[in-house]
Amino acid sequence: MDEAVKLCNDYLNQNQVSTEAYLLLGQVQQAMAQNERAAQSFQKAIYLQPTHQEALTHLALLKEHQGNADSANLLWQRIHRLTKDKQF
């Protein structure tokens, strides 16, 4: 897992910033129980692509796990609006 974090960080340092790289980094950090770092990585992915549903979902689930229901609910509402907009 440490190697995966290193590879993600190396990629981000050597290339243009990438939503997918931040998402992967967050997933690895979350698997390592580095929840604050994971949240930061998911937030960076969302900053780069505000409609990235996978990053939003990961962050919402992480916020729920941390007991931050208000933040999680706001994220779920945002995801719901995005999926509703895609239907039209």
Rank of each mutant, 00 (worst) to 15 (best):
M1P: 09
D2N: 13
D2G: 11
E3T: 12
E3V: 15
E3W: 09
A4W: 00
A4I: 00
V5P: 00
V5F: 00
K6W: 05
K6L: 12
L7T: 10
C8G: 04
D10K: 14
Y11A: 10
L12T: 13
L12E: 02
L12C: 05
N13W: 00
N13Q: 14
N13M: 06
N13V: 07
Q14G: 04
N15G: 07
Q16Y: 06
Q16N: 08
V17F: 13
V17P: 13
V17H: 07
S18E: 02
S18P: 05
T19I: 12
E20R: 13
E20M: 07
Y22Q: 09
L23S: 01
L23Y: 00
L25D: 02
L25R: 08
G26T: 04
G26K: 08
Q27M: 07
Q27Y: 01
Q27F: 00
V28K: 05
V28T: 05
Q30I: 09
Q30P: 12
Q30W: 08
Q30H: 15
A31P: 07
M32V: 09
M32W: 03
A33H: 15
Q34G: 11
E36C: 12
E36Q: 14
E36D: 11
R37N: 15
R37T: 11
A38P: 03
A39K: 09
S41C: 07
F42K: 10
F42E: 04
F42R: 11
Q43R: 09
K44G: 06
K44E: 05
K44C: 03
A45E: 01
I46R: 02
L48C: 13
L48P: 11
Q49N: 10
Q49P: 03
P50C: 06
P50D: 06
T51S: 12
T51R: 12
H52W: 04
H52L: 08
Q53H: 14
E54R: 09
E54M: 09
A55C: 08
A55T: 04
A55H: 02
L56P: 00
T57Y: 06
T57H: 09
H58T: 08
A60W: 00
A60T: 01
L61W: 03
L62T: 04
L62S: 02
K63N: 07
Q66K: 15
N68R: 10
N68V: 01
N68D: 04
N68M: 04
A69D: 09
A69Y: 05
D70A: 14
D70L: 10
A72P: 01
A72M: 03
N73H: 10
N73G: 03
L74K: 15
L74T: 15
L74P: 08
L74E: 10
L75Y: 01
Q77I: 06
Q77N: 08
Q77R: 15
Q77Y: 05
R78E: 05
R78H: 14
R78S: 07
I79A: 02
H80I: 03
H80P: 05
H80D: 06
H80F: 02
T83E: 12
T83D: 03
K84P: 05
K84Q: 14
D85R: 11
K86F: 02
K86M: 08
K86Y: 03
K86T: 11
Q87Y: 02
